[in-house]
């Protein structure tokens, strides 16, 4: 793979998870370098979301550990991971519905890190982020009234407001039109250029393909292949995993 000069920011070591007798993840290990964009792909039920929730701290793993800059964070709650620089978005956007768009983003600025932020810094950061995601003219709208795409953008802005070192995007393209996916792709490419480390999941490939440096293919709880995007999608194991489940595409994985 790539040369090992780079710094490892996230390391997943031997993570397993069962729900009852159903094994969802089996002995998953991989690491993520600073500045890298890693896409996790796989058909529905492959375990992508579970893996994601384990990394973000929402689900405890049955076995295995998560390291963040060399520190074992397996037992940390999600809010602490967020303040340590590990921000996430959700498949179904989670906004504060009665707050305005601006207030939503401000929540990220205020609570996303331990050091205090002044009022003027807060204003500037909110404005900048809303401009970056293209919601500046919506800043006084109620978040609950936004469309799905706008809520995704808002959630992205709010996650960025916490000043993450790693951003976890869970199925951010799900349910969006091709045009919207294209816009999101451009936005994510911009974030990548700024040096942000990203971890994405997607069961469709139109978003992860152009933005990822490396892909990890998951099927039935195991990593079946990993490597650069172009090489990986022609891997027969990946093709097999996908072709078998094509019809299920469109539901959440």
């Amino acid at each position: 793979m790539e040369d090992r000069e780079v710094k490892i920011c996230l390391e997943v070591r031997g993570v397993s998870k069962q729900y009852g007798k159903q094994s969802v993840l089996r002995d998953i290990s991989f690491s993520l370098a600073e500045g890298e964009v890693l896409g996790i792909i796989g058909p529905n039920g492959a375990g992508k979301s579970t893996l994601f929730n384990i990394i973000a701290g929402w689900t405890p793993p049955a076995r295995g550990e998560i390291f963040w800059w060399g520190e074992n964070i397996t037992g940390w709650p999600p809010d602490r991971r967020c303040r340590a620089g590990l921000a996430r978005t959700f498949q179904i956007p989670q906004v504060f519905p009665e707050m305005s768009v601006l207030e939503n983003v401000r929540m990220g600025v205020w609570f996303g890190q331990d050091r205090p932020v002044s009022a003027s810094q807060t204003r500037d950061r909110c404005r900048l982020l809303l401009e970056r995601v293209g919601l500046a003219d919506k800043k006084h709208s109620r978040a609950g009234e936004l469309s799905l795409m706008q809520q995704r953008l808002l959630e992205l802005a709010r996650a960025l407001a916490t000043e993450p070192k790693l951003l976890l995007l869970d199925e951010i393209a799900a349910g969006l039109s091709l045009k919207a996916v294209k816009e999101l792709t451009d936005l994510i490419l911009q974030l990548k250029e700024k040096g942000l480390t990203l971890l994405l999941t997607d069961h469709l490939l139109n978003l992860v393909m152009p933005v990822s440096d490396r892909l990890l293919a998951l099927d039935r709880g195991v990593i079946i292949a990993s490597g650069p995007p172009q090489a990986l999608i022609h891997d027969p194991r990946v093709e097999c995993a996908y072709l078998g489940t094509r019809e299920a595409v469109g539901e959440e994985g």
Partner: peptide, 24 residues
Amino acid sequence: SRWGWALRGLRENETAAVAVGIRA
């Protein structure tokens, strides 16, 4: 206050509140 906004965040959407770093 910011604490009040943290409480409001928890009231409106606890998942989102935890995701932005609020100690619920």
